[in-house]
């Protein structure tokens, strides 16, 4: 592989993969907390809407959703999404639905007495959520969120099928240019592996930090 290909395609490709992962993770986290908390809401209608969202977005394939946002939405709405943002939207919305299940599970796992104590102190529902439930639930969510983040990183490879120049797309171009298929695809897989390793490490650190705030030690 020549240094030109490396500098013009592979390195920018890595940067695009990292950006995609960060933006979609931010969107997915927002969706996960919004929908996950809505699933513990008093109102039945809110709970139903949140459950419907989760089932629809967990039910469909992220790649089909991405194609749908990119090819079907523009004629319906009359405006076109940049491929990068169609990808972020598709990844954020579908991985957010998986994350919502994690948030719901962790909120349900907080001891009911904690919730009752909040009622007894006449906290508002939002105060109970913010001051009692979330501080205890968030550390429990982090290992699952770590796995989901690695899944999300792997999911970003799908954008290469829309022509976004991420590291998978770069690999495809380099293969066409040099025919050194085994080499470039091995390098690409190793790049993803290293990125996944970094995610796993930083989530471990985050877990230790949030648990330390609660006074719980992590092995």
């Amino acid at each position: 592989m020549t240094s030109g290909l490396w500098q013009n395609w592979v390195l920018p490709g890595i940067w695009i993969t990292v950006q995609l992962t960060l933006y979609s993770a931010a969107l997915a986290t927002a969706v996960a907390f919004g929908v996950g908390m809505a699933r513990t809401h008093r109102s039945k209608a809110v709970r139903f809407a949140a459950a419907f969202y989760t089932e629809v977005f967990r039910g469909t394939s992220a790649l089909v959703l991405m194609f749908w946002l990119f090819f079907v939405l523009p004629p319906l709405l009359g405006w076109q999404l940049v491929p990068m943002w169609a990808a972020v939207l598709a990844l954020g919305l579908s991985y957010g639905a998986y994350g919502a299940e994690i948030v719901r599970g962790a909120l349900n796992a907080v001891a009911p007495a904690q919730q009752e104590a909040g009622v007894a102190l006449s906290f508002t529902p939002w105060q109970r959520m913010r001051l009692i439930m979330l501080p205890q639930a968030v550390p429990e969510m982090i290992p699952s969120f770590g796995n989901l983040a690695v899944e999300l990183l792997k999911g970003t490879a799908l954008v290469s099928l829309l022509g976004v120049g991420d590291v998978s797309f770069a690999a495809y171009l380099v293969r066409l240019a040099t025919q050194e298929t085994a080499q470039i695809y091995t390098v690409t897989l190793v790049i993803y592996f290293v990125l996944a390793f970094l995610i796993t490490r930083s989530m471990k650190a985050l877990e230790r930090k949030t648990k330390a705030n609660l006074g719980v030690a992590v092995k």
């Binding site: 690695v150 990183l153 792997k154 999911g155 970003t156 490879a157 799908l158 290469s160 099928l161 998978s168 690999a171 495809y172 293969r175 298929t181 085994a182 695809y185 091995t186 690409t188 897989l189 993803y192 592996f193 996944a196 390793f197």
Partner: peptide, 21 residues
Amino acid sequence: EFIRNTPLLVQLFFLFFVLPE
């Protein structure tokens, strides 16, 4: 560990292009 932490799509292309070689 390696297979689990890398994207299926890239593995797919790897096998599709490299197996014939």
